[in-house]
Simulated assay, not measured.
Amino acid sequence: MTLSAAITPSDANTQTKTWMWRGFPITYQSQGDQGPAVVLIHGFGASLGHWRKNLPVLGERCRCYGIDLIGFGASAKPTPKLEVEYTFETWGQQIADFCREVIGTPAFLVGNSIGCIVAMQAAVDHPDIALGVAMLNCSLRLLHDRKRAELPWYRRMGAPAVQWLLSVKWIGQLFFGQLAKPKVVRKILMQAYRNPEAVSDELVDMLMAPAADIGAVDVFVAFTRYSQGPLPEDLLPLLPCPAIFLWGTEDPWEPIDLGRELANYPQVKKFIPLEGLGHCPQDEAPEIVNPILLDWLSQDATA
């Protein structure tokens, strides 16, 4: 399986390119040559293809970019710790450098799931590159060490035990091998999406392709053992730009009732519930998400 197999063309006008970052190839797509710059940042286990229904539409009025974070999609998957630390600080730096070296201007950052944390980390660490942040079903990081500390003792033990087991190389490889199967991936997606018709063969194939790349197992294990770093409530008070939230009301992984608490920070201008949608609303219902993003971009770009 080649790296390019992970890429799903968004549109005939979409260009797929490679950018070298710290000596590693990073894959990105772009569309549009006018208007504000927008960077689309995927979630864990996903890739820029998760924005294939959004990039062409946003690209009609913006300079729109979708990027594979290092370790995911068709981008390089260097050895954890020895070559790259897979942390939000690393990914935030990647996004900031992309804005400076490839785009050449500050940008609006749009994230899904952990991509929201990456977007906020980039904006907090590099205020000069961020015009605003839109977050779709932000990861609440419920397995974070500080979150687990609030649980009863008998509920704290499960995740660390699993994380330790996955650190044993053959166990991690076995677990990943069982997970990276079309039937299993489809079953997981059917939990995350409320509309089963959105769980297409194209989507399953797109998410499966990078699993065959050398290094994919090590990246997966490294992130599943990453229970440190920032929580959204750490970053929001430091955010140097306005933010909005879009949240699928039927998300089984990031409950909207907990997500609503993030709307209390002054940096958050809007919290928009997306009725009946799951964890990845940009892919499940682009006809709902795209107009909201375009409206946000048009208002903030002229503010």
Rank of each mutant, 00 (worst) to 15 (best):
A209K: 05
M206I: 03
L274P: 05
Y226N: 14
T18Y: 03
A130R: 09
S4M: 10
M190Y: 01
I214S: 14
W170N: 01
A209I: 02
V39K: 08
S139G: 14
P160F: 07
A5V: 02
L258I: 03
L174P: 00
F98P: 08
E275P: 00
V219G: 07
P281F: 06
P242V: 12
P232S: 12
P237D: 09
Y65F: 15
C64Q: 03
V102C: 12
Q228G: 08
D125E: 11
M20G: 01
F271Y: 13
G43D: 13
G66N: 02
K269I: 03
G158S: 13
Q34I: 04
Q267S: 14
Y265A: 12
F245L: 15
S139P: 00
A303V: 05
M135G: 09
I188H: 07
P266H: 02
A119I: 09
N54P: 00
D11M: 05
V168C: 12
P106F: 09
A134V: 10
V57D: 12
R186H: 07
Q178N: 09
L274W: 01
I288Q: 14
L179T: 02
R146H: 05
G276W: 05
D251F: 02
Y65S: 07
L58N: 08
E250T: 02
I67A: 10
S227Y: 05
A37Y: 06
